[in-house]
Structures are given as C-alpha cells and as structure tokens.
C-alpha cells in the first residue's frame, strides 16, 4: 500500500492528498482475509454460502456461523471481523423489526440494505471510530421478488445477480460469471427471466466454495448454506442436511475431476 509512512492513514476523518480514505481500504484488507462468502440470485429465490474456516479442531461443529437471519425473509452472510458481523446483524435485526412495528409489513431487502449501508457509512466520517471490517451479502425475497445486495466497509452497496466477497473472491466471481452468462444465454433463447433454480444453485455455490478453498494455507472449513425459496416456505433457512450433503459430495467429485484434467 502506497500510504505506508505517508501519514493520512491514522484517521478515517482525514483524506489522503489523492482523495482516499486509507482506513477504509485497510478495512477491505480485513475482509480479504476471511473465508469466501457467496450470494446467488435465482429465479425462485436466493442462496447464500460461506466457507467458514476453522482455526481450531476443538471448535464445536456448526458454531460461530457467519450466515444469520435478519428477518423471516432476509439473510445476511458476512466476511471479515466476526464480532463486527455479529454487531451489524443485531443492528440490522432491530432495523427490520422496527420497520415492521412502524408499518406493519415486512421490510424490503432494498430498504434494509439501504439503512444498514447508512449505518456503515457513518463509521467512515469520524476520527473517533474505525470502519467496519466487513463486507456483507444481504439476500432475501420480498414482494418485489428475490433480491441480493452487497455492502462494503465504505458503506457503498450494489445490487447483484451473484456476488462473492472474502478470500479468493476473484476466482469465485469468474465462476459466478460463467453461471450467470449461461443463464443469460438460455434466457435469450427461451425467453424466460432466469432458468436457474435454488436447488441447482446450492450445488453451484458449494462447488465454487470447494474450488476456491485453498488446501495448502487453510486446513479445514465448514460449508454453510442457506436459502430463501419455495422449498423453505419463502423463509430464510438452512439448506436441509441431505441437500447440503449431496451438494458437498458433488463439489468434491467436481474438484477431483478438475485435478485429473490438470
């Protein structure tokens, strides 16, 4: 990073001469150290997946999940500082439930993402705080359809067809692009909005996570998969055990196959 020794990197309330906020860029570094998190939007819902790296063999299976529910119909997958993620999740849940309290209807994914991003952005304005070391993928199904957003430490957020953050996000993104492009081609021929279903998507997400996982650097990981679709009653839920198992099997098989080709 060019900023080393140049100053301008101690406070988020001071720009560098070329107009950057170094603390925000460092926060992005914290995100890049985390296991990959993926979101994929399908025709019937959204799938979220996380490569949860295990730093100890003593950890309880399934502990310290990185995917959480914000409301019945919205899930969040975060990459970065775990504790920041927990705080943000809690805050976003309050936001979602206060929306319900005020308007007696579920919050849309767009509005919730917007409010969370405003919260994150506030942490880039003051010298007394540090930005969140967190990129969050927010996926959900509301009355406008299935939606997927990614919020970055700067507070900026974009809507996506598919998105990946964390370690190896570049590779994950190229894989996702292949899926989305294939989907777009079939759309042009078949004239449907999207042909990819959540059931197919969980296999793809699992495959990508296994592909991206670096066996040499990180020993073990647990695959976290959640979805929001008809099968889950249009609620954010864990992908059922059998489906998760079969997705993992297929992912491992695909990986073996890929190795033989090399």
């Amino acid at each position: 990073m060019t900023s080393i020794g140049t100053g301008y990197d101690l406070s988020v309330s001071t720009y560098s001469p070329d107009g950057r906020l170094f603390q925000v860029e460092y926060a992005n570094k914290a995100v890049e150290a985390a296991g990959v998190a993926i979101g994929l939007r399908c025709k019937d819902g959204v799938v979220l997946g996380v490569e949860r790296l295990l730093h100890s063999k003593l950890l309880v299976k399934g502990a310290n999940r990185r995917i959480a529910s914000l409301d019945e119909h919205i899930g969040i997958a975060s990459a970065g500082l775990l504790a920041d993620g927990k705080h943000l999740t809690r805050r976003a849940r309050e936001e979602a439930s206060s929306f319900r309290e005020n308007y007696n209807s579920p919050v849309s994914v767009q509005i919730l993402s917007d409010r969370i991003s405003a919260y994150l952005q506030a942490y880039t304005c003051y010298g007394s705080v540090r930005p969140f070391g967190l990129s969050s993928i927010i996926g959900g199904v509301d009355k406008t359809g299935s939606k997927l957003f990614c919020i970055e430490p700067s507070g900026v957020y974009y809507g996506y067809r598919a998105v990946a953050v964390g370690k190896g996000k570049a590779l994950a993104k190229t894989e996702l692009e292949k899926i989305v492009n294939k989907d777009l081609e079939s759309q042009q021929s078949g004239n449907v909005e999207s042909s990819l279903t959540c059931k197919q998507a969980i296999d793809e997400v699992a495959r990508i996570i296994y592909l991206v996982h670096d066996d040499n650097k990180d020993k073990e990981f647990e695959l976290e998969l959640t979805w929001i679709c008809e099968e889950s009653g249009n609620k954010h839920a864990l992908v059922p055990e059998e489906l998760l198992k079969s997705a993992e099997e297929k992912a491992k098989a695909a990986l073996e196959e890929g190795m033989e080709e090399d």
Partner: peptide, 18 residues
C-alpha cells in the same frame, strides 16, 4: 403483534445458534 415479533426474533436466533 407483540408475540409474533418475539417469535420472529427467536426464529432468527435459532438459525445461527440452533
């Protein structure tokens, strides 16, 4: 309304903490 909100909160926690 109150109880439904409470249950939604519980459901959200159930996913992460089983």
């Amino acid at each position: 309304k109150e109880l439904d909100a409470l249950l939604r909160e519980e459901d959200a926690l159930a996913l992460t903490d089983s």
